[in-house]
């Protein structure tokens, strides 16, 4: 039986701004469903992807209440990916770049993540079968 692949993803974009965030989370979701071991290094604006203070909202312009608007929040997707990976026997080691977090006041992230530095990215790359960097423009 082949060993479980370990993949590292490097995210840079803040949420709500670019399709790259959605695509990155789609990739993580696919790999989590396969039970892969996943490493994520979130830096710059991406440290806000799992920000715990994200909140759904109604949309008065379109006349929709909170339930009708059903506003998606990336922190919920990250939580779902971590839970799915665990269900499938995989892992998610998500590191938030500490300096990026401090600069942005983004310390309040969902549980299950950890603070780190670019040195963690080097370690991730060393132990991974592959690394995909998804840079911002």
């Amino acid at each position: 039986m082949a060993p479980t692949p370990t993949l590292t993803f490097v995210l840079m974009d803040p949420p709500y701004e670019n399709a790259r965030t959605t695509t990155a989370l789609r990739l993580l979701d696919i790999a989590a469903r396969r039970g892969y071991n996943l490493n994520v290094f979130a830096y710059e604006g991406a440290v806000y992807v799992p920000f715990s203070k994200q909140a759904p909202h109604p949309n008065a312009v379109h006349g929709r209440d909170l339930a009708q608007e059903d506003h998606p929040n990336p922190k919920d997707w990250v939580e779902a990916i971590i839970a799915e990976a665990k269900r499938q026997g995989g892992t998610v080691d998500w590191v938030q770049c500490g300096l990026c977090v401090d600069e942005r006041g983004a310390a309040e992230s969902i549980p299950g993540l950890r603070r780190g530095s670019p040195a963690d990215l080097v370690k991730f790359a060393e132990v991974s079968d592959n690394t995909l960097v998804i840079p911002t423009k």
Binding site: L7, N130, V133
Partner: peptide, 17 residues
Amino acid sequence: PLDVVIDQLAEGRKALW
């Protein structure tokens, strides 16, 4: 499907975005 990207990453292809 986007799964192809995961397949090829797991295969060890050199990847560039």
